[in-house]
Write a protein that binds this DNA or RNA. Structure first.
Lengths: 229, 229
DNA sequence: TTTGTGTCTTGAACGTGTTCAAATATAGTG
DNA sequence: CACTATATTTGAACACGTTCAAGACACAAA
């Protein structure tokens, strides 16, 4: 029952560790930063750090999770300002990336764990599950009340699909070495348009016959996600 | 300049290590098997093991690579026996999974690293570049001389796309907990049909306008894969 | 003030993957 | 066979993530 202590002192110390870790990760990367380094910079002993965070990875996860708060607020604004689906989708992802920018250099080490469901490797699957839920809920708000055109039977899968799409973009962005990550921007422009069109196409009568196939596949895939342990 | 020694003795020792590792991974999993265990079982000192494999991960990679030999032979047979694209694709993937079956329990470890950019275990990394090439070449043979219908401009991307598809299926299979991995079989049936139809649809005139968009996105994506270091 | 009960902190110690200088085996050459 | 160079092996040592028993601290009740 270690995590999420709520005494004021614990909160302060948690924050101190996060600050130290973020600074060090940015300075020298994830691998090159040892738990002893983090503890030192936070003026603590190693053991104390482990009192507040179960593992080194959990620190990264906490840093990542902090950005979700901002993302949720931002999307509330965004959905109020426009119903245009493409604009909303692009805006949500842009904002998420901007938020994550300081973490970009070391985020690669977490990316895999975050979105590989049921990976026996990841000891935080329950923690990352909570974040998945939050991130998917954000995509839910993007869709809700938007101009999106899509065959009705896809609605229940939309937030999962869009979340997957965002994950893909994010993982591209993480290893995008072009200046200012321009390639990610270009890929975003292309694929946001593509995704929008693709959804629209699901309503074309002649193509509609394939929807059943797609849905079955989606449901199978979803089943796996649910059982993630 | 450590790897790939070609003296007969080195080859024998490499094989002994692989045998020991495979047995231990199957008995108790990847994490629970220490390098000392592997060395012991292979009647070697730890250092000797590291003389033949740079890291523990490289052992997994070698075990995985061993299956490619069989896959290549099998696909040569398969393409001779039928030109039907769907049958070939399904056959190639089925065979690959059957081949990997003994490794399934601990391949999850590999799967976790699949999407971590820069991880030596990632299929995008330079370490596994050779294997990637071979696996993609196999998909090339599946397409070549097959009944596949697809818009010509996609041809250059086919083997990469199909390889990605296979990766997706494999990663699903790895964490598929249904008995006999039935869900994977069902997903395969659905998606092989889907993929075939999807390719065919790229030739429909009305939809053809989106092909440019898709191709641009593909090329951007490809760029990243090339530069993976 | 003293005692008691939780909340934090400490740092030595453990297990793991990995490295390395030194020792040994092997093979090629005179 | 002896000599040399290269290929292989050894096991102690290292660094890092992690654990844990013991202690320090805060603060309420007596």
């Amino acid at each position: 029952m270690l995590p999420e202590r709520n005494t004021p002192k614990a909160k302060r110390t948690r924050q101190a560790v996060l600050n130290a870790a973020l600074a060090l990760f940015q300075e020298r990367g994830f691998e090159a930063t040892t738990m002893r380094d983090i503890a030192d910079r936070a003026s603590l002993a190693v053991g104390a750090t482990y009192y507040h965070f179960r593992t080194k990875d959990e620190i990264v996860l906490a840093l990542y999770g902090a950005t979700l708060d901002a993302a949720e607020a931002w999307v509330r604004e965004l959905t109020r300002s426009t119903p245009d689906f493409a604009v909303r989708l692009r805006g949500a992802i842009d904002q998420a990336l901007a938020q994550l920018a300081p973490c970009r250099p070391f985020l690669g080490h977490l990316a895999g764990h975050v979105f590989i469901p049921g990976s026996p490797l990841s000891p935080f699957s329950s923690e990352s599950a909570a974040m998945r839920e939050r991130a998917m809920a954000i995509m839910g708000s993007v869709v809700e009340g938007s101009t999106l055109k899509v065959a009705g039977e896809f609605r229940p899968h939309l937030q999962r699909l869009l979340w997957l799409y965002q994950m893909g973009i994010t993982s591209y962005w993480i290893s995008d070495r072009s200046p200012q990550q321009r390639n990610t921007q270009r890929l975003l422009s292309l694929t946001v348009a593509l995704v929008t069109k693709l959804f629209a196409v699901t309503r074309v009568p002649i193509l509609r016959q394939a929807n059943g196939l797609i849905l079955s596949a989606l449901e199978l895939g979803t089943g796996r996600l649910e059982q993630a342990a």
